[in-house]
Computed example of a mutant assay.
Amino acid sequence: MVAVAILAAGRGTRMKSDLPKVCHKLGSLSMVERVLENCLGVEPQRRLVIVGYQRERVQQSLATYSGVEFVEQAQQLGTGHAVQQLLPSLEDFTGDLLVLNGDVPLLRSSTIKHLLETHQTHQNAATLLTAQMPNPQGYGRVFCDGENRLTQIIEDRDCTAAQKQNHRINAGVYCFNWSKLAPVLPKLEANNDQKEYYLTDVVNFLDPVMAVDVEDYEEILGINDRKQLATAYDILQTRVKDTWMKAGVTLINPDSITIDDTVELQPDVIIEPQTHLRGKTKIGSGTRVGPGSLIENSQLGQQVTVLYSVVSDSVVKDNTRIGPYAHLRGHAEV
Rank of each mutant, 00 (worst) to 15 (best):
A3C: 15
S17D: 13
S17Q: 14
V22K: 00
V22P: 04
K25C: 14
R34V: 10
N38S: 05
L40H: 06
Q45F: 11
Q59L: 06
S61K: 09
Q73R: 01
Q75M: 05
L77T: 06
L77G: 02
G78A: 06
A82T: 11
Q84S: 14
L86M: 03
S89T: 15
D92Q: 14
T94N: 12
G95S: 13
V99H: 13
N101Q: 12
N101E: 15
G102L: 02
G102W: 02
D103L: 08
L106M: 10
E117L: 05
T121E: 15
N124F: 08
T130W: 06
Q132N: 04
P134N: 09
Q137P: 12
G138L: 07
V142I: 10
N148A: 04
R149F: 08
R149V: 08
T160G: 11
K164I: 07
A171W: 00
Y174L: 03
S179N: 07
E189K: 03
Q194R: 09
Y198E: 02
T200E: 15
N204W: 09
N204G: 14
F205M: 10
P208S: 07
V209F: 10
M210I: 10
M210P: 08
V212Y: 09
Y217F: 12
I220R: 00
Q228T: 13
L229A: 13
I235R: 00
L236R: 14
L236G: 07
D255Q: 11
D255V: 10
S256V: 11
T262E: 12
I270P: 02
Q274R: 02
Q274W: 05
T275N: 11
H276M: 08
R278E: 13
K280H: 14
G284S: 04
G286W: 04
T287I: 09
V289R: 01
G290Q: 03
Q299E: 09
L300T: 10
T305I: 15
T305Q: 12
L307M: 02
V310C: 12
V311L: 13
S312R: 06
T320P: 12
G330D: 13
